[in-house]
Simulated assay, not measured.
Amino acid sequence: MIRVGLTGWGDHPLLYSEVTASKDKLFDYTGHFLVVEVDTSFYAIPSVDNVRKWCEGTPSSFHFVVKAYQGMTGHLRGDIPFETKNDMFNAFIKCADEFKRHGKLAMVLAQFPPWFDCQAKNVQYLMYVRQQLKDFDVAIEFRNQTWYAENFREQTMDFLRTNKFIHTICDEPQAGAGSVPFYPVATAKKALIRIHGRNIHGWRNTGNTENWRKVRFLYDYNREELQQLGQNIKSLQSQTDEIFVLFNNNSGQHAAKNAKELQNILAIKDDGLAPKQLNMFEGEL
C-alpha cells in the first residue's frame, strides 16, 4: 500500500475551502490525503488534548507521522526545557501514545542534523532512542552522507534492520556532506520517503537564516521527475508492506500540487477521505 501526503496541514491553501480556510484546515486536508506529518512536534511537544482533537476530527483510515522533538535528535542548541533527558522522552511518549491509542500513529520520525555523522557515539545514541521508543515504529532520517559512504551503507542498513528502525529515503539536493543520496532500500515492514525538492542553491545556509528557510524547500517537480520517483516507489513495493510518501517542498506551495500529480501517476485512489472538496483538482491534473 502506498500513502501520499504532505508535511503539515496548515500551509497548503489549494486544499482549503473558503468557508474553513481559517478554522479547520486539517478537516479540509483529510479530503485529499490520508497521511500527514506532524512537523510542529519538532518545535514543541503537542498536548494530549490537541492530539485527541486531531485524532477524533479525522477519518478512521487517517494516519499521522509524528516528528520527534528537536531535543531528542540533537538539533536544540543549549539546554533542553526539561529537568532530565528521560523527562523529555517521557513527555513525547505521552503524546505519541495518544496517537497510538486512536490507531492513527503511522510512525515516529527521528530526523537527525547534518552534524550527526556515522561514528560510534552516534550509533550508541540511536540505540538509546530505540530503547526509549521501544513501543513505537520509528523512522530514522539521516542528513549526513557518511551513513551512506560505500564502506558504511550496508552496515547502516543492517543496523536499522536489526534495531527495527524504518529507513527514511530522501529525495533532496546533492549538496555535499549535509545531504544524503536517494537510496531506495527498505529495512522494515514500513518505508518512509520524504520529498524535499532539488534546490541545490538553497539547500545550504549561506548566513541569512530567515531567507534560507524560505528558499530551502523552494522547488516544483516536473512531470518527468515525478514519473521517475513513481517508478522508484513502485520498485520499493517488493521490499516492504506499506510506503508513506511525504512532500516537504512547500516554500512555494508546490507540495500539494506535486503530491496530487504523483497520486495520479501511481493511480492512487484513496478510500475513506473526508467527504469534502474531493473534486477540487479535477481538470487541473
Rank of each mutant, 00 (worst) to 15 (best):
M127H: 11
T20Q: 10
G57H: 14
S238R: 12
Y125R: 06
D171R: 01
P46F: 07
N151E: 14
E224D: 15
T84H: 08
G252H: 01
K269Q: 07
A139N: 01
Q237D: 05
A274R: 07
D271P: 00
L126N: 02
I2S: 06
V48M: 09
D117A: 15
D171C: 02
V51N: 07
D137M: 09
V65K: 04
A255V: 03
V48G: 07
L26K: 10
E172L: 03
F89V: 01
I193N: 14
I233D: 04
H254Q: 15
D241H: 12
T168D: 07
S61H: 00
D39S: 14
E224M: 14
Q228N: 12
R52G: 13
F281W: 09
M72P: 04
Y125F: 11
I80F: 05
Y43G: 04
F82G: 03
D241A: 13
I45G: 02
K67E: 08
H167K: 09
E154K: 06
G178A: 11
Y128A: 09
F33S: 01
Q155T: 11
T20V: 11
N151H: 12
T58A: 15
W9V: 13
F42P: 10
I166W: 00
V65S: 04
H63P: 01
G78S: 04
S235R: 07
R130V: 02
D117S: 15
V123D: 03
H201W: 14
T40R: 12
P113D: 12
H75T: 01
C170Q: 00
Q228R: 14
G207Q: 07
W115I: 05
N86G: 06
C55D: 09
A177G: 06
H201P: 10
A68P: 04
G78R: 05
D97Q: 11
M107I: 04
L226W: 08
T168R: 02
